[in-house]
Design a protein around this nucleic acid. Sequence first.
DNA 1: AAATTAGGATGTTATGAAGCATATAGTAGA
DNA 2: TCTACTATATGCTTCATAACATCCTAATTT
Lengths: 233, 233
Amino acid sequence: MRSAIKRPSEEDSNLTGFQLFNKLTKEEFNRLNYEKTCSLYKKGTIIYREGSRLTGFFCVTRGIVKIFKTGIDGKEQIIRFAKKGEIIAYRSLLSQELACTTAKVIDEAALCHVPYQTLLFLIQNNWQFSHHMLQIVCRELREANDYITDIAQKTVRERLAEVLLLLKDNFDLDNQNTLQISLTREELANMVGTATESVIRLLSEFKNDKMIELQGRKIKFLDIPTLTRVANL
Amino acid sequence: MRSAIKRPSEEDSNLTGFQLFNKLTKEEFNRLNYEKTCSLYKKGTIIYREGSRLTGFFCVTRGIVKIFKTGIDGKEQIIRFAKKGEIIAYRSLLSQELACTTAKVIDEAALCHVPYQTLLFLIQNNWQFSHHMLQIVCRELREANDYITDIAQKTVRERLAEVLLLLKDNFDLDNQNTLQISLTREELANMVGTATESVIRLLSEFKNDKMIELQGRKIKFLDIPTLTRVANL
DNA sequence: AAATTAGGATGTTATGAAGCATATAGTAGA
DNA sequence: TCTACTATATGCTTCATAACATCCTAATTT
């Protein structure tokens, strides 16, 4: 399951960039570093599966991980993507439930596994850590609530435009305004909550309307104001 | 805005039933009780509004509060209901954001307001409180994620059946299997994310298929297994 | 009792989006 | 390079559901 490849680099093991940990004492941070385990995962690897019991959470230090739920007849619903600086699997761990999502690597990734015991130690010893963690979950909850409203009230067209803008804000653009995350049409459909064909059709429309430009999976933004208007934001 | 009526009873001010507080020391609990403020609110009262700055969170000791977001052209999306023993407004407070939902009383309610300072004091002094709070948010986040998947993948028919079962599990039934929460068809529609007419039609269908019985807003469950099958659970 | 209002019910129509079929283009493997 | 496979594209058809238009019912007010 956990097909680690090569050895993680120094940078892959470095957790100093995580705001979550920036209020830890030197001792706490050392303990965290001692107890964590870092590995590399190639594209397609499943980090954990829906229904499994988790032994800790993961800090993403490189690459992109797709978090999704499996719905009716295996259709994926993408909940979010996690990139460098973000943590995954903490929700199920904290609520002491089985994993309710699956995490799959979509861009060669490096992850540090932090055991449950370490998490508990930090919660018990550093209120600022708990507080920070609370803020992270609360923000994610707001995003989830926002998305429920969108998906319940907006058209597929509006939601697709919104998802594109969301990707733009969360992932880098190159100097040509091209999205640096590569998703299949199906994955876009699984974010928006629609059929693959609908995404293909609407992307073509957006292209015809000069809002975006398409080259395979590369999406280049041409007219963000119009796209924003289409998204009904 | 905060139209309090009468004086809250002894029971309305009693927070001992809240699991969230059951690991507090005697001193902490006393401080909580000293700093909280309880009031009664009649049906229709807005407790807080989307976009407002919150000064604390609320513990519901009686009645039912509807939490919703306002979407396109004022259409409500109901996020959840809070009843006795549950807390509201904590999400925005913890993430230090403006309220992203509105809370409205739908069944005469009693609420205790706990100031932000008190919340912060508890987080700083009692890790078990923080831990408990983390679990509450994490559970709500799972429910939100589940709902995103449902709303994205299920039909309106399936979702309505599911919502009815959800209400059954979260609110009392009388000895006749009748739901003790009274919602308008529009409110049901705003939970399911559909049009009021669709809810009316589907409820009639469910009635014809002998799954439920309707008398005004009262919903009586006749055949839960079938309803569960319809919900695709 | 008349008047007002909000909620509920129902028929009709319009349409967004899914589903299916098929064609083409990339991409990876042997 | 051939092969196989997966992803993308596009037309056509079907269907669930939204939107609109009334009409009805019950509760509340005057």
